[in-house]
Design a protein around this nucleic acid. Sequence first.
DNA 1: TCTATATTTCCACAATTATGGAAATAATGC
DNA 2: GCATTATTTCCATAATTGTGGAAATATAGA
Lengths: 113, 113
Amino acid sequence: MDIKSAVTQLSSIAQEARLEIFRLLVQAGIEGLPAGSIGEQLKIPPSTLSFHLKELSYAGLINSRQVSRFIYYTANYAAMNGLLAYLTENCCAGVNNCCPDVTSCNSEKGNES
Amino acid sequence: MDIKSAVTQLSSIAQEARLEIFRLLVQAGIEGLPAGSIGEQLKIPPSTLSFHLKELSYAGLINSRQVSRFIYYTANYAAMNGLLAYLTENCCAGVNNCCPDVTSCNSEKGNES
DNA sequence: TCTATATTTCCACAATTATGGAAATAATGC
DNA sequence: GCATTATTTCCATAATTGTGGAAATATAGA
């Protein structure tokens, strides 16, 4: 990953509404949530929501698929992993107390396809 | 960490000049670098640099100390660790392939005071 | 005190980002 | 085709962020 991609991805979650959307999608798992459901839960009007979803999609942190009239959005775990890896490698390089605690990971709950 | 702090910290590194500054300071280690040296290496004019350093300081990702006429800036490793931990816990929770590879950490090079 | 150097503050301006109503587009069932 | 529902696009406007010259501030040494 280059620095411009990192900045694009960071920018996409450096906004409260979008970080909330992303968190919600992570919690929702691989099935994801339709746009309307996200907007309803987070109280975000349709056009504003669409704007934020586009930002996250452009950055590659979420994906979407159409199911009937609904468009389901899902967190792109691999992209988030890549961003965290970039920050860990490039911004913590060799500094042993500048790395995240990953004990909450690798549980039995992993559910990416 | 709450979501607002996370957004503030993410915003502070979601900008190319600032991410470069932060990376440079991480590489510089605990001694850090004086503002002038950062500006010289990254070709950033003084007032612009000062603006960006203030943003990073406000977010808590860097610290500063005065040494004679120089102000040395240092990366706040603990803060970066906290941010990565937040993202790992809140945005990857329980998803085992959504976690960073930390094998580059915990080397013998750890040098925080 | 005068001068040199380091950094910040002030300020104006430019650029980008965020918001949400209204209209448009798209998909489904009758 | 028409009505219904889901989502996006368009648009105007507001708010925030980024830039850098010039002046101000701060520190140090002669």
